[in-house]
Design a protein around this nucleic acid. Structure first.
Length: 472
RNA sequence: GCCGCUAUCGUCUAGAGGCCUAGGACACAGCCCUCUCAAGGCUGGAACACGGGUUCGAAUCCCGUUAGCGGUACCA
């Protein structure tokens, strides 16, 4: 029994897509579950679109999620030599042949076939060239690509998530494995690398199902045993189409910016297309690993549900102590242009945490409590002012008088609550009519933590100043 | 067109022939709590795509239909 080796092989052509992140997560989970090795391989063969910056974004995204690799990153571009050697080996074994057809000829044949409403399939004409023909073209310096000979036989495999999938070789054509410039085509590079890296399980997106028979054909031609394949379903947008930029945030980094906790993101992604069975939702890492299996992966594509992600994030948020959240909240405050200095943010975070679903929510609320210039009167606040009319300022005046009498040392949630309740009772006011104006004065809105806590967190001097400002 | 994959509440899913008058979670609605809003608790509406089989019995097995998705490159 050889040990499990899996890999995640993104191409650095943009950012880390949530679909890719989930594929990486499943690989990681499987490696952890089986005590195997998780290899990271960057498929940078598309020189035009690949950049180092993109590679870094992917590395950062995986690190953020805590999806750590055991080996690599390898860069596919380094292995051109081996890819080419494999293609030439196939040529010598007559499992492949040189194709002298030009791009133009091929394109023409393709458009012609499409007009006739049938799919283009290369007819293998160059594969039937005589020895002398080939030699003559070679001598003339005619450029050529290399194609595999696709055998007319069944190509089937036992997919770890889909069970048996089967194709017929005759439905596939002799596809190109090496371009006329000597660089490898994706399917060859992948197979060559997976063999070299002794990959035992290929866990990748559903969209690769149609590549798989081609790759199996290559394994056969190369005389190697294919790995186990596990094709995980796609992630869709709310309209049922493949998730793309049109649907809003699709990059892992976007969610980081919005203040999603990495563990919440990872938990959410794990449950998108995989089920541990039963009613579990919040899964600690150990449980996630212990319960993970390829069989538990769904066959059906899943819709990305932002509302559920945010709910889950809220769950993680409330389970984390404020101290743990503080560094991240500081970063978000920085992004908002607020400098809290050396002030202890923990009480502020605790005050607003349960009303927040993201770190950004927290930062926004903390910002208002820290800096009175960030108060903006919202529509509900205006409504209250209109509704109360003269009572709004009158009640604030009463509050101001009562609280001014409260010295700094007694500016505590308990004392504040007592003072406010006493005031309402003494004046025969409804508690809400006393509390709500304060809330509007301090935050501009009608929603916040309990008013006594709000006052405590904003502080005596600042609270009184805000109340005074709201009265004028 | 051809090849392939898929099909349980709006969404994520449980369900491996009787435990299903189909369970949970998100979202939604109502109630409780309450100075507001959340959180929390309770309640409610909400699904086996359709048609044939197999079987004493089918959400579960088989076939077909329909729909959606993926692929059909000298892209990855």
């Amino acid at each position: 029994m050889t040990s499990v080796r899996v890999r995640f092989a993104p191409s650095p052509t943009g950012y880390l897509h949530v679909g890719g992140a989930r594929t990486a997560l499943f690989n990681w989970l499987y490696a952890k579950r089986t005590g195997g090795t998780f290899v990271l391989r960057i498929e940078d063969t598309d020189k035009e679109r690949s950049t180092e910056a993109h590679t870094q974004v992917i590395l950062d995204g995986l690190a953020w999620l805590g999806v750590t690799h055991d080996e690599g990153p390898y860069f596919q571009g380094q292995f051109y030599g081996r890819h080419r050697a494999d293609a030439e080996g196939l040529l010598r074994a007559d499992r492949a042949y040189r194709c002298f057809c030009t791009r133009e000829e091929l394109d023409q044949a393709r458009t012609h076939a499409e007009k006739g409403n049938s799919s283009f399939r290369y007819d293998g004409r160059c594969g039937r060239l005589s020895r002398a023909d080939v030699d003559a073209r070679l001598a003339a310096g005619t450029p050529f690509s290399i194609r595999v000979r696709m055998p007319d036989e069944e190509i089937a495999w036992e997919d770890a998530v889909h069970d048996r999938i089967s194709f017929q070789g005759r439905d596939l054509d002799d596809f190109i494995i090496l371009r006329s410039d000597g660089t490898p085509i994706y399917n060859l590079a992948v197979v060559s690398d997976d063999i070299e890296m002794r990959i035992t399980h290929v866990i990748r997106g559903d969209d690769h199902i149609s590549n798989t028979p081609k790759q199996i054909a290559l394994y056969r031609a190369l005389g190697r045993t294919p790995p186990v394949f596990a094709h995980v379903p796609m992630i869709l947008g709310s309209d049922g189409k493949k998730l793309s930029k049109r649907h809003g945030a699709t990059a892992v980094g976007d969610y980081q910016d919005q203040g999603i906790l990495p563990l919440a993101m990872r938990n959410f992604l794990a449950l998108l297309g995989w089920s541990p069975g039963g009613d579990r939702e919040i899964l600690p890492e150990e449980e996630m690993i212990a319960l993970f299996s390829l069989e538990g992966i769904q066959k059906k594509a899943a819709v990305f549900d932002l509302a559920k992600l945010e709910w889950m994030n809220g769950q993680y948020l409330s389970a984390r102590p404020a101290a743990e959240l503080e560094p991240a909240v500081r970063r978000h405050l920085g992004a908002l242009g607020v400098d809290p200095g050396s002030r202890d943010l923990r009480p502020l975070i605790d005050a607003v945490k349960t009303r927040s679903r993201t770190l950004l929510d927290i930062a926004n609320q903390v910002a208002v409590r820290l800096d009175r210039t960030r108060i903006t009167r919202d529509p509900k606040g205006d409504q209250l002012v209109t509704k109360l009319g003269a009572a709004f300022t009158a009640n604030l005046a009463l509050v101001s008088a009562a609280l001014t009498a409260l010295p700094e040392a007694q500016w505590t949630p308990a004392a504040l609550e007592a003072a406010l309740k006493e005031l309402a009772e003494r004046e025969g006011k409804k508690l809400g009519d006393v509390m709500q104006p304060v809330r509007v004065a301090l935050t501009g809105g009608t929603v916040s933590e309990p008013v006594n806590e709000l006052l405590a967190v904003v502080g005596r001097e600042d609270s009184l100043a805000r109340i005074a400002a709201a009265r004028s």
